[in-house]
């Protein structure tokens, strides 16, 4: 009984350890670009809230967040090397077969993020946010992101 319990505990510990090791090993372009996307989202959400009036407009936050988004986008443009289309990723092969179009949308997104950083009044915010979200996020995901799988 005790032995079984010990084995079970060891199993749990091992499973835990394995999970940890997996997390530690989460490097490489796929994990890095996924982290970049998460960071972009967490910086984009507050700006959307400002557009919706759920959060007061604050030019300093807009500038800071938009600059982070621009930097993360710039970094992720380099995180799609050849061969990083397999594994736990929703990147479509078209990223590599239509790489010019992919890079063009990336560049548009970077440009729109930089424009967003320069927004100084609340009435400029909605169009700038939607330009980044529409011509950046949406335009790219429409063509280059696989749908989720159950």
């Amino acid at each position: 009984m005790a032995l079984a319990t010990a084995a079970m505990l060891a199993g749990v510990a091992m499973a835990g350890g394995h999970g940890g090791a997996k997390k530690m090993a989460a490097t490489g372009p796929i994990a890095e670009r996924q982290q970049a996307m998460k960071d972009i989202k967490s910086n984009f959400v507050p700006l959307v809230k400002m557009v919706k009036g759920a959060q007061p407009f604050d030019a300093a936050t807009v500038k800071k967040n938009a600059e982070i988004i621009a930097a993360k986008l710039q970094a992720s443009a380099k995180l799609f090397p050849e061969g990083s289309d397999t594994g736990d990723t929703r990147a479509k092969p078209e990223i590599w077969t239509m790489s010019e179009e992919f890079q063009a949308i990336m560049n548009t997104a970077i440009e729109k993020a930089k424009a967003l950083a320069n927004v100084s009044s609340p009435d400029q915010l909605a169009p700038a946010v939607m330009a980044l979200g529409g011509e950046g996020c949406k335009a790219c995901h429409e063509k280059f992101r696989k749908p989720k799988q159950k």
């Binding site: 984009f44 557009v51 939607m130 529409g134 949406k138």
Partner: peptide, 21 residues
């Protein structure tokens, strides 16, 4: 709002698989 603006307003997963159109 999600149907109206989609990812332009940060509503995720409304673009892939043809949903963007």
């Amino acid at each position: 709002q999600a149907l109206k603006y989609g990812e332009a307003m940060g509503y995720e997963d409304l673009s892939a698989g043809g949903m963007g159109e």
